[in-house]
């Protein structure tokens, strides 16, 4: 029993769930397309917001934002629901499944038993789709996994009611309106404009291109201010956010380049291919920043010079990205 839901692996869970759900309803869009339309590319460095004593760096907007923006720009409507009562949350999901409706939901990854141990921490904004139930076992389309996976009733209940920051509280969502006609061109343009605007124009120096420059400046001070151990932890965290699960490499820069290529084709704008090439070069620079960071962590004797070198790469990235967004803004 079940529906013909096609599971496709993606780099990032939010794009993946959106892409898989839309595909089920007959709208075929790639992961980069969802990412670009949802203005998924972003940067923020928040020294005052710490997890485990280490500042948070992020290459994307807050969880849920990409999905919401993409849905809105594509005319796709979802209904969302949160719960106090855990069993009610499971019942409501069951009745949707009975009506053959795939259900998207937010879960915590800590108790997700099919995840590798190194990736299981108390992160609560992971997205997946439940699309079938047999006896007490649910079939799960988790965009991170290569194939569909399975969870029991109790296992699923546990991850839906994970605790901590962004506790999902059984949050689930399902499609209530599927667009008959998608205005892809307009959606792409709106998505690009928003990205360019946010990366250039937020008047707080923690976000966008300004955020990258600010972070670079801070990194130069790390070894003196924090001492070797802490400095390497701070720097390592930046690269983790950039490369660990979900970004498709280089803090989403390669994924965005892929989007720009697709956009160039849809809009028939040659110059967007050039922008994609530029974004690829920028992605490669982010990768060299990661290489530099790993070198600092491995060779613990390195001090200020190495941090300055890492910061220099970031300054170069900021300059290059700025140019790209200025061009993109004109679209």
């Amino acid at each position: 029993m079940g529906i013909d839901f096609q599971h496709k692996q993606s780099a990032h869970c939010e794009n993946g769930v959106a892409s898989n759900l839309l595909n089920y309803y007959g709208i075929k869009l790639s992961e980069p397309m969802i990412f670009g339309i949802g203005s998924g590319l972003f940067f923020s460095y928040m020294p005052f917001l710490k997890v485990n004593g280490i500042p948070v760096t992020s290459y994307r907007p807050l969880p849920g934002v990409i999905f919401r923006r993409a849905a809105k720009r594509l005319g796709f409507k979802v209904k969302r629901k949160k719960f106090r009562n855990q069993d009610k949350a499971m019942q409501d999901m069951d009745s949707l499944l009975k009506k053959n409706t795939p259900v998207g939901m937010l879960v915590g990854v800590y108790h997700l038993n099919y995840f590798p141990k190194a990736y299981r921490f108390h992160f609560n904004a992971h997205n997946l789709v439940v699309y079938a139930k047999n006896d007490q076992t649910y079939t799960i389309s988790d965009p991170v996994m290569e194939t569909p996976t399975y969870l029991t009733y109790n296992e699923l209940k546990k991850v839906r009611f994970a605790q901590g920051i962004f506790a999902p509280k059984g949050h689930m969502y399902w499609a209530i309106k599927i667009p008959e006609h998608v205005d892809l061109k307009n959606a792409i343009i709106t998505g690009i404009r928003k990205t360019a605007k946010d990366m250039l124009g937020i008047p707080i120096p923690l976000f966008g291109v300004k955020g990258i420059r600010y972070m670079a400046k801070q990194i130069r001070k790390y070894p003196k201010k924090l001492g070797k151990r802490k400095a390497s932890q701070y720097l390592g965290q930046i690269v983790r956010a950039q490369e660990e699960i979900g970004t498709g490499g280089a803090g989403f820069r390669f994924m965005y380049a892929a989007f720009l290529q697709e956009a160039a084709q849809v809009l028939n704008k040659e110059w967007l291919y050039e922008m994609a090439d530029e974004m690829t070069i920028i992605g490669d620079l982010w990768r060299s920043f990661a290489v530099e960071t790993a070198r600092i962590i491995k060779d613990r004797s390195q001090v200020e010079d190495a941090y300055n070198q890492a910061a220099d790469i970031l300054m170069k990235i900021a300059d290059k990205e700025e140019k790209v967004y200025i061009e993109l803004k004109k679209i």
């Binding site: 780099a11 390669f254 790993a294």
Partner: peptide, 26 residues
């Protein structure tokens, strides 16, 4: 348990995904 998709360029310079088991700096 799985491999992670990485966005990369094919021979024609077009983006696609290649599955990776890891990268040393990461």
């Amino acid at each position: 348990k799985f491999r992670e998709p990485c966005y990369a360029l094919d021979e024609q310079g077009k983006y696609n995904t290649i599955k990776s088991v890891g990268w040393e700096p990461k």
